[in-house]
Design a binder for these strands. Structure first.
Lengths: 208, 208
DNA sequence: ATTATTCTCTATAGAACTATAGAATGATTG
DNA sequence: CAATCATTCTATAGTTCTATAGAGAATAAT
């Protein structure tokens, strides 16, 4: 009886499997997909390089799995916020926070998804890309609704605002660990920054 | 007399040298430093892989040169804006635009600097990193001054705002070419977004 | 205890990549 | 023309990397 393919139902315990992908995520996040070797992953596990192929059938497949785990929950949480009956300002605030908070738990997975997904082979990149576009669509929806409701300013370009906001929030993954502030505080500060704006509104200048 | 080292004064014409680094920047930007081979660069030039080593003495050195070119002018322009006697709101607006506009000309250089500098060897990474920190310091200075002057809101955290704004503006490099809007329009939209805020100020709701 | 199953190991094929050495080509100048 | 210098070429050493094949160890099932 032949050994089961790595892609089929997994006889290996979830625990060990998770350790392997944790290591892969770690190494991909730290060195980048192309800069990471399967040897690096094996070293982290105290395992031989070739043994990894029991858990995935190619380095690319490992990247795909890590990226997929990196997006887990994002869409669901965003959809839930979209469907909630908060006002659009609150929804946007929640969306912004939801984009940042998962960087606490699965930091390596999220960072790999953000930075390395572009190296996936065309097919899986498309599949993963669909998730990004879904997130973008939800942001854009909330912004448009907010403008329509008179809650957000008319001049805002929903598409560019979406991409800018996501760019800002996703950049957090690259620097939050070097700052003293925790993710919660960062999410709060940035959300407040963009929703309220930097400029002091006219007439409410109680300084000087 | 031995051949001159690639790092010393360059006998080669500036023109050809620029073509070589343009190709390197292109390939680094497209495939990432580790994903790019010197063969890829040579292919783009219609040249043999080994011939490249007449222009640089290692792939790492090529990356360093490309990154250095990618930062050219940034500091100078930011310093000039800081020293100008505009109000802080205008300064911030100009800084934000200055962060985005160079992505038109040297797109490949800028993108390589932003995404690949982390793979530089420690020494040159430090050197390049100093430039980033200088830009950050200028942003932070303007924000603090704006708050002190009562021009910006007191609640803003200057450090986190700086990192968030730079994250947003730098993200433009990753997506502007897929959007119909030109860089000028993007810079304007994002700057207006963060300075004025998303939310419609109370009392000026002339909709509905 | 024997057998089956899961996991890890050794060994290695085969490909790709960086970098060096030195010859060949082409242009420029005396 | 001859000599010099700049640029590109051929050839290749030496390393690293992915992935496969199949043996062996460990664990669980009958």
């Amino acid at each position: 009886m032949p050994r089961r393919a790595a892609t089929a139902e997994k006889p290996m315990t979830r625990k060990r499997r998770d350790e392997v992908f944790d290591a892969a995520a770690r190494v991909f996040a730290e060195r980048g997909y192309h800069g990471a070797s399967t040897q690096d992953i094996a070293d982290l596990l105290g395992m031989r390089q070739a043994s990894l192929y029991y858990y995935f059938h190619s380095k690319e497949a490992a990247l795909e799995e890590v990226c997929a785990r990196g997006t887990a929950g994002f869409i669901e949480r965003a959809e839930a916020i979209l469907k909630s009956d908060e006002d659009q300002g609150t929804k946007l605030h929640l969306l912004l926070a939801a984009q940042v908070m998962p960087m606490a738990e699965g930091a390596d997975y999220v960072q790999t998804f953000l930075n390395e997904r572009k190296w996936l082979p065309t097919e899986s990149r498309r599949r993963i890309g669909r998730m990004s576009r879904r997130i973008e669509a939800i942001f854009e929806r909330v912004i448009r609704d907010g403008i329509r409701a008179g809650e957000f300013r008319q001049e805002i370009n929903p598409r560019l605002a979406t991409l800018g906001l996501l760019g800002m929030m996703n950049s957090v993954a690259a620097w939050h660990d070097r700052e003293s502030a925790g993710l919660e505080k960062i999410a709060e500060a940035l959300s407040n920054l963009v929703i309220g704006g930097i400029r002091q509104p006219e007439g409410s200048n109680y300084g000087s």
